[in-house]
Structure formats: C-alpha cells, structure tokens
C-alpha cells in the first residue's frame, strides 16, 4: 500500500463520513427523540438563514434576467425570458446556489460550534449528563439541515423568480400573473420534483459533514477554525457531486 498522503487522507475522511452517516441512520429512528432540540435547531438553521437566502436569491434572479436579456432580444425570443429563467432557477440555480450559501452559513457554524464544544469538553459533559451527544447534537442538526434546506430552496426559488420579474419589468411591462403563467407553463413535475428532492440530499450533506468535522476537531482552538473551514469546503464540493449524480439519475429514469 503506497497511497500518497492526500489520497490516504481523502479516503480516510470519506470512510469517516460514511461511518458517521451510518451512525446517524442507526440512531435517528431509535428513542429517545430530542424533539425540543430539533425544533430549536430547525429555527436556528431555517429561519435565521432566511434573510441571507432571501437577499442573495433576489439579487440572483434580478441579475440573471438582466444578463440573459440582451442575447434573448437578439434572437428575438424576449418573451421566453420568464420560461428560461424559471427552468434555470427551479432546476439548477436555485437548489445549488442556495445550498452553497447554506453550506457557507450553516456548515461553518455547525463545524465551529461542535468543534469548540469538542475541544472544551462540552460534548463529554453532555455525555456524563445522561445525554447521548450524537443524538442531541448530530441527529438534531442533520435532520434540521435536511428538512430546512428544501424549505429555504422553495422560498428562495420564489424570491429568485420575483427578482426576475422585477428584472423583466425594468425594460418592459409584464403583469405578475402573466409572468407567473409564462414561467410556470414551461415547467413540468418531472423537472420540479427531482429539483426539490435533491435539496434534501444537499441539506443532509451539509449537516452530516459539518457535524463530522466538528466532532472530529483535533484538540486546540485553531482546530475549530479548521473544522469550520473544511466543513464549508467539503460540503460545497459534495453539493456539486450530488448535483451531478442527481442529473444522471433523473436522466436515467427518463425525467429529463
């Protein structure tokens, strides 16, 4: 075995994350259930990300429309802007951009929080206080990210489309109902549902990787920073990998 170090590290981490995820599934359906903590995490992870997601989504929708417009006008298909933006936003840009922002905000905060809990022995303290820290800290957070990201994406997608609506109205006058019907007519369930479904996986990846990084923070406070940083990097990469898998699977199932 002469794996060079980066590869060995990469595989080691992959195995670690896989085992961590297995542990999550082994524990998630077994009592005791940390319902109150789950709700608290959902609030912290979902609600408190909304302003950031909302702002970036709005700008994204607006900019996308303004950037697309010149070429669409040149091809004489200006009226197709809502349809095109809707497909781009719902199928790809919404899920991926929002998941990346989510990874930046939530992945790092989970990594840093659990990391500092780890190095200051708070996780041990929990364990001796009759609490399974994996259940209390990891299961709740991973469930919260998995459940909240789709909600954020639904809201973010809508805000992006609203931003695009504003973008269209900068140049021409299009009523809101017309815009919505133009945008939505181009979409089908086969495009909408897989796009929403994949965000569950994105959310899961952000949660599980953030928790893994936090839980495996090496001793010392600078380890906390590293945990937060690599939680974001690794989960962002995984979002893209999962996105690639998602498009291939939907393609395979003939939903493309």
């Amino acid at each position: 075995m002469t794996l060079n170090k980066p590869w060995a590290d990469f595989l080691d981490e992959l195995g670690g994350i896989a085992r961590f995820a297995t542990r999550f599934f082994a524990q998630v359906f077994r009592p005791r259930y940390e319902g109150a903590e789950l709700l608290r995490q959902c609030f912290l992870i979902g609600n408190l990300s909304l302003p950031l997601v909302g702002l970036t989504s709005f700008i994204m929708g607006l900019v996308l429309t303004m950037q697309l417009r010149p070429s669409m006008v040149e091809y004489g298909v200006e009226s197709q802007i809502p349809a095109m933006v809707a497909i781009a936003v719902v199928r790809e840009i919404g899920p991926v951009i929002i998941a990346l922002i989510f990874a930046g905000k939530i992945g790092s905060s989970i990594g840093a929080e659990l990391g500092s809990m780890k190095v200051t022995e708070q996780i041990d303290a929990m364990e001796v206080s009759g609490t399974n820290p994996f259940k209390y800290l990891v299961v709740t957070r991973v469930l919260a990210t998995t459940l909240m990201l789709p909600v954020l994406v639904l809201i973010g997608d809508s805000i992006m489309l609203f931003g695009s609506f504003i973008g269209v109205n900068i140049y021409t006058v299009t009523s809101f109902p017309l815009y919505i019907s133009q945008a939505m007519d181009s979409l089908t369930f086969q495009e909408f549902l897989p796009a929403i479904l994949k965000t569950f996986f994105f959310g899961f990846a952000v949660g599980i990787i953030g928790c893994y990084k936090g839980f495996h923070t090496s001793r010392g406070t600078e380890g906390v920073g590293r945990a937060a940083n690599s939680a974001v990097v690794v989960s962002s990469v995984w979002i893209f990998i999962l996105d690639l898998l998602a498009v291939q699977i939907t393609d395979l199932l003939g939903y493309n």
Binding site: M117, T120, E121, Q122, D124, A125, M126, S129, G130, T131
Partner: peptide, 29 residues
C-alpha cells in the same frame, strides 16, 4: 452516571445556554 459528578478541567459550560439552562441541563436529562 447520575450518581457520579464530574467537574471538567475546562469547565465545559455549554456556550449556547444561559447559566440557568446549564444547571437545568443535567437535571432534565
């Protein structure tokens, strides 16, 4: 463990909770 107390070297107070919640935590758990 409920019958054995442990004072951690680094205190291990929960940063995200108030003093009251810190004290209630082992009781609730």
């Amino acid at each position: 463990r409920a019958k054995v107390g442990f004072l951690f070297q680094s205190n291990a107070l929960y940063d995200s909770m108030t003093v009251r919640e810190n004290l209630e935590f082992p009781m609730r758990r």
